[in-house]
Amino acid sequence: MEMDTNILMFNLIPETIRFILDIRGMEVIKKAIASLFEKGTKVHLYFLVGLFLATALVTLQKRDFIEIIPRAFLFYVMVVCCVYAGRWLTRQFLIKNRWAYLILFGGITVIVFSIISTSLLIYLFGNTNEGDVSDFLITTPLFVIIMIFCGGFIAITRTVIQQQINEVKILQNQAETELNLLTNRLSPHFLFNTLNNLYGLSISEHRKVPGLLLKLSALLSYALYSSSETYVKLNDELDYINNFIDLEKVRVSDRLVLNVDITKVNGDINIAPMVLIVFVENAFKHAKNTLDKQIRIDIRIWVDQQFIHFFIKNNCPDGLVGVRDDMESGLGIVTTVKRLDLLYGDNYSLDYGKVKSDFCVNLKIKNDAKS
Rank of each mutant, 00 (worst) to 15 (best):
P273I: 06
I262K: 08
E167N: 12
K249Q: 09
F153G: 05
I203S: 10
H189E: 08
H206Q: 13
N243Y: 10
G151R: 00
N193H: 10
Q174I: 13
D268M: 11
Q163K: 11
L198R: 03
N196T: 08
L220F: 14
S227C: 01
A272I: 02
L276R: 00
F190P: 04
E248C: 02
N184V: 06
G267F: 09
I262W: 04
V160C: 01
T157Y: 03
F244Q: 04
T140P: 00
E229W: 03
L234R: 00
I245R: 04
E229I: 01
D246V: 07
I148K: 00
E229H: 10
L256W: 05
Y231F: 07
E248W: 00
L219Y: 09
A223E: 13
K285V: 06
C150W: 01
L219K: 07
V232N: 06
F143K: 14
I245L: 04
N259C: 07
P188W: 08
I148N: 01
G267R: 08
Y222P: 00
L179Q: 14
L182T: 15
N173H: 14
L258I: 12
A272N: 01
Y240C: 08
A272S: 09
F153I: 09
Q174T: 15
Y240K: 04
T177A: 12
E205T: 14
L198D: 02
T157F: 04
I165A: 12
V168N: 11
F143H: 05
K208D: 07
N197W: 03
L195V: 15
S226W: 03
N196I: 08
T140F: 03
I148V: 06
N193M: 06
G151V: 00
V168E: 14
Y225A: 01
D246K: 09
G151P: 01
L213V: 14
A218K: 10
A223V: 10
Y222N: 03
M147L: 12
T157L: 02
V232M: 06
I241G: 12
P273K: 03
